[in-house]
Design a protein around this nucleic acid. Structure first.
Lengths: 131, 131
DNA sequence: TTCGTTGCAAATGTTTTGCACCTGA
DNA sequence: TCAGGTGCAAAACATTTGCAACGAA
């Protein structure tokens, strides 16, 4: 792994994700950053998202079908993913520590992190049904 | 949703996944089924995998980067995913029910299913390090 | 006969990469 | 100066889709 060097683009990507409550795709990051950096390229956005994820400064969320989403929130939390609109909601439940403890005894390797996703239809989509 | 009609290809896809202990990608399913059906097409494999997943007869696993994986094992279980070789191992831990119970109180919608993934480096990769 | 299914190929959508130029240390 | 970073465009992948022919009910 080569030494890192400062770059305004990478900082912008990181800062952008930190200030978002949702979980943008690379495309969204690109589109929004273009206002500040009219010349930034999609390739650069991808390179930095991948790099930051490897550094553990952001999280990559493989939701399902379509593009990957990114999460700048590093605090432990889980996701509720709507099967209809594919929106990703943050939720927080406890007991994850004990879950990881159990996993350590059942895994063929060292458990480092854990991702918990719940699926269902969100209220917003449910209420559209009755309309 | 239109009425289903029997198809040998779809049966073969389902049967293939049921008898596998690992979690093949569409490409792998395609390659293996080609021995039995030399003319089966990748498109057909994708169509049937998608269909079976919608019917809930198989599970789609979005592991991370690269292609999706599919799991024919419907019994409740979790996955340990090696960050190095990306292999997916089945593990079984209890307490998932109570986790879902907690999630119901914290989610912006009806919780239907839950996916728990653990990440780390598997023993096989770890032992290669010391070699 | 009807309508879902298939094979094939082309199209789409997402992410990666090669390369010449730019920039931070 | 020099290794890392960037923009751009092309390439590489993964997945979906249009369509004519095929096959199950």
């Amino acid at each position: 792994m080569p030494a890192l060097k400062y770059s305004r683009q990478r900082e912008a990507v990181r800062h952008f994700l930190m200030t978002r409550r949702d979980h943008p795709t690379a495309e969204t990051v690109y589109t929004c950053l273009r206002e500040e950096f009219p010349n930034i390229s999609l390739g650069t956005v991808y390179r930095n998202l991948t790099l930051l994820a490897e550094l553990g400064e952001i999280q990559k969320i493989s939701s399902d079908g379509g593009a990957e989403h990114f999460d700048g929130d590093l605090s432990p939390h889980q996701h509720f993913i709507c099967s209809r609109c594919h929106r990703i909601y943050d939720i927080r439940i406890d007991g994850i520590d004990s879950l990881m403890e159990k996993a350590r005894n059942a895994s063929p390797g060292e458990v480092e992190t854990c991702r918990v996703n719940f699926y269902g239809v969100c209220e917003q989509c449910t209420s559209k049904d009755s309309a």
